[in-house]
């Protein structure tokens, strides 16, 4: 009961944020709605017993990546977006396609729901220790590879954003 109430409340927040991202015309409003989505996703992760992932979601996504977006929007002084012929075409052909995709995915998920189990609040929770063990054992190589990826990303960002003289 409590779990259902919390789930529907947070899910409504999530979907409202995502729809607002779509409807707002100023990028900073879109960015703020995305932050709302990310925050409510962190709450859903807590419901699913993933406290470490929830906090990393807030620190990395809401606290670092989105700050970078907001910073760039403020730096470039981005205004409201203008609508062109291309965007109207995308709307006419895109909207039915999106509705079709949602319908299809929801149908597939709900028709197979007998094989899926239920989530019980507090029945299973992973601690930081539980996440760390597979991360530094089974997934050690991917972990090291991501560090190289990050290094390349840093170098790429420096080279791209540098002003040429």
């Amino acid at each position: 009961m409590l779990h259902q109430a919390l789930f529907f409340l947070i899910a409504a927040m999530c979907v409202a944020g995502a729809i607002n991202l779509l409807l707002q015309r100023h990028p900073i409003h879109s960015a703020l709605s995305l932050i709302v989505v990310m925050g409510s996703l962190a709450l859903l992760y807590l419901l699913l017993g993933a406290e470490f992932v929830a906090m990393i979601q807030l620190i990395v996504y809401a606290g670092a990546i989105m700050v970078l977006f907001v910073f760039v929007i403020m730096l470039l002084n981005a205004g409201e977006e203008e609508h062109t012929r291309g965007s109207r075409m995308a709307l006419w052909f895109g909207a039915p396609a999106v509705a079709a995709i949602v319908g299809m995915v929801v149908y597939v998920l709900t028709s197979n729901s007998t094989t899926l189990r239920e989530v019980h609040l507090g029945a299973w929770a992973s601690t930081t220790h539980d996440v760390a063990m597979p991360l530094f054992r089974e997934y050690l190589l991917p972990f090291e590879v991501t560090s190289i990826l990050i290094l390349i990303a840093i170098l790429g960002a420096v080279v791209l954003a540098r002003r040429e003289h």
Binding site: Q4, F7, G94, V98, V106, L116, V119
Partner: peptide
């Protein structure tokens, strides 16, 4: 208790809203 499919449907809806915004 909430079925896992609810979470998956939410995830699908968010994903398609992302696709829509992208387009």
């Amino acid at each position: 208790m909430v079925p896992v499919s609810y979470y998956l449907v939410l995830s699908a809806v968010l994903f398609t809203l992302g696709v829509a915004a992208f387009l």
